[in-house]
Nucleic acid binder design. Sequence first.
DNA 1: GTCTATACGGTGATAGAC
DNA 2: GTCTATCACCGTATAGAC
Lengths: 211, 211
Amino acid sequence: MPSPGSTPAQPGRRPRGRPGHDRAAVLRRAIALFNVQGYDATSVSDLAADLGVTKSAVYHHFASKEDILAAALDEALTELDALVAAAQAASDRSARERLEETVVAAVGILVEHRAAVTLLLRVRGNSAVEQAALARRRHIDAALAALVVEAVDEGDVRADVPAEVISRLVFGMVNSLTDWYEPGGRSGPAALAAAVRGVLFEGLGARSRVS
Amino acid sequence: MPSPGSTPAQPGRRPRGRPGHDRAAVLRRAIALFNVQGYDATSVSDLAADLGVTKSAVYHHFASKEDILAAALDEALTELDALVAAAQAASDRSARERLEETVVAAVGILVEHRAAVTLLLRVRGNSAVEQAALARRRHIDAALAALVVEAVDEGDVRADVPAEVISRLVFGMVNSLTDWYEPGGRSGPAALAAAVRGVLFEGLGARSRVS
DNA sequence: GTCTATACGGTGATAGAC
DNA sequence: GTCTATCACCGTATAGAC
């Protein structure tokens, strides 16, 4: 495959033609705009104006507006698929251990791919593209729930609450990070992941042995 | 009170005009549609068709599409304001105790006014109405965060995580209920509230004294 | 390879006539 | 209270400039 049209553009060496945006740059701005204004409320004109080009330029990079959304959702889903795969592997470790690591890793993904994940979490299945994304997400959620079931069965996670509910609550808390976490915040991703892990697995109580 | 708009039930003597929907009925359907399709993706035509009337009939009850949104958001915000007021009162009790009760009450509101709260949680401030709602919501969030600070100061909630972060995580978990809880589910609201309280304050660990 | 100009069919919100 | 006309703007297609 002799480089089919993709990125000869090394920094400092403009290949040819105009100094415009490439597909990845358009996608990045689109995700940002979709998150601020909402997908439906964002017109291709908005995106083009934000990039400083015309609508047609946007349609040069993507076949349709929905195609942009699909690419954005794919970014998030690819990361989450990898998360699930990692959680299912290494089954020599206890489910509880893998669950804790999965929560920590999920926080990392939320932070690193915040914009794409935020978009994914807001999808409501209002089109074929969105429904496909929801289906992939359901698969991921089911795998995470199965991990919780394992941990409950092994006796390392409380059994007085249905595992399905626990799974929803755990990843509901993790996902809620997209609503407020700012990359430039006071506490970094590592501290945040530790906080989530601590609150979830140890509870809110003061750190004391007795009581 | 001479039956305000509802069921005059006098044969052959309609009170006025047609047997159409009243404002509350329109609002209820609107909230449902907004949640399924998204606010922006829902046109007034959609709503009118769903109600079986024309667009203009909808505009008779509400001045604009945004006005419908404002009414919906007000329902949720009114409930949450009451929640905050209750949490701040009774300050003879410990902050931890009031926090636990607030969490339980919040779950109740989420369940009972799920549709309106869901709408509120999706607002991004894309218009004056939405910005006003966001401002009210920020005020509520701040009050809840202050309650957590109190509980930390009293030594009843862990201090190794910033109170602000704890507050976000706690109510992030609570708010995530809107994404999956179905009123007809197997576990009722009371069991759900108990589950959330338990997971948050005791942690996910198996119920055992000796570990 | 990236962008501009232009146009078209469709639909939304809304105002004004009935 | 309802119907209709209007008009702005949407997503998309095509043809060509740099």
